[in-house]
């Protein structure tokens, strides 16, 4: 973590959003997404308002629009999936430029696209303002099972170490004249993957040994006590509260 891992998603800053405790932000994100998902898909205006709300958060966090949109590209595969829906869904049809499109498919595509995009944008904002390890600490504070948090944090700590091991193996392969060209060489690649697995497994055993030697008994000790103040919770609650109001409006109008 730290700069080594965070540089891709995290954007260093000192805004009020950055300073919020991670668990407040995670809870706010979750409630916001729930409100968005609960909104009827016909309430088109509501989704515009949600987008404005996220825009306001981005401004408050001083995250530039370009940064936000580039990080949102991760959504592209899902967009493609949504675009297919009007073509494959059944039921009442409309013809656009002579192409038959399913009405329910169109609504379905819009539904996935709008709610998915809002969810991704909100998550990108969380990731841009919160370091990865803070997210994990936040999840722990929100009572996520400690074992899952530990697994995730080890993944982050050792991701680079294992990637480095793979890189060294690749260099060693290439230094002996190996070049992967087609199916005949898949066997070699599979053996590399197997060797990497064994090495990582053995490293896991050594790490566990080092942990046990320092008194590990199955739970991580509490290292960070960062309770959130009422003011911080209130500030974090602004977004989901506004989203809830929009959602209720979408149902009643």
């Amino acid at each position: 973590m730290g700069a080594g891992h965070a540089h891709k998603l995290y954007r260093h800053g000192h805004s009020r959003v950055h300073r919020l405790p991670a668990h407040c932000k995670i809870a706010a994100l979750l409630c916001f997404v729930l409100a968005v998902v609960a909104t009827p898909r016909e309430a088109l205006g509501a989704f515009g308002l949600y987008a404005l709300l996220l825009g306001a958060v981005a401004v408050a966090a001083r995250v530039p629009a370009g940064f936000l949109f580039r990080r949102m590209l991760v959504e592209v595969p899902f967009v493609l999936c949504a675009v297919l829906m009007p073509f494959v869904a059944e039921g009442e049809m409309v013809h656009v430029l002579g192409v038959p499109l399913s009405v329910s498919g169109l609504w379905g595509a819009w539904n996935v696209l709008a709610k998915g995009t809002l969810g991704v944008a909100a998550s990108v904002l969380l990731a841009a303002t919160t370091e990865l390890r803070e997210v994990l600490q936040g999840l722990q504070r929100l009572r996520m099972p400690s074992l899952l948090v530990q697994i995730a944090s080890f993944m982050i700590r050792y991701g680079d170490v294992i990637a480095d091991e793979l890189r060294r193996m690749r260099i060693a392969r290439a230094s002996r004249g190996f070049e992967a060209r087609g199916v005949r060489h898949w066997g070699v690649l599979a053996k590399t993957a197997g060797a990497l697995f064994i090495r990582s497994y053995e490293r896991g055993e050594r790490v566990h040994l080092a942990m046990v030697s320092r008194g590990y008994t199955g739970t991580m000790p509490v290292l960070h006590e960062a309770p959130a103040t009422r003011a911080q919770w209130t500030y974090a609650a602004t977004l989901p509260a506004a989203a809830l109001a929009v959602c209720l409006m979408g149902w009643t109008l």
Binding site: G2, S153, I156, R157, R203, R206, V207, R214, T217, L223
Partner: peptide, 18 residues
């Protein structure tokens, strides 16, 4: 193998905190 926590401080704190 020995340093398994995200930052140096957390790692050094692990033993005494445990």
């Amino acid at each position: 193998d020995q340093l398994f926590m995200p930052t140096v401080r957390e790692d050094v704190a692990f033993g005494p905190a445990a």
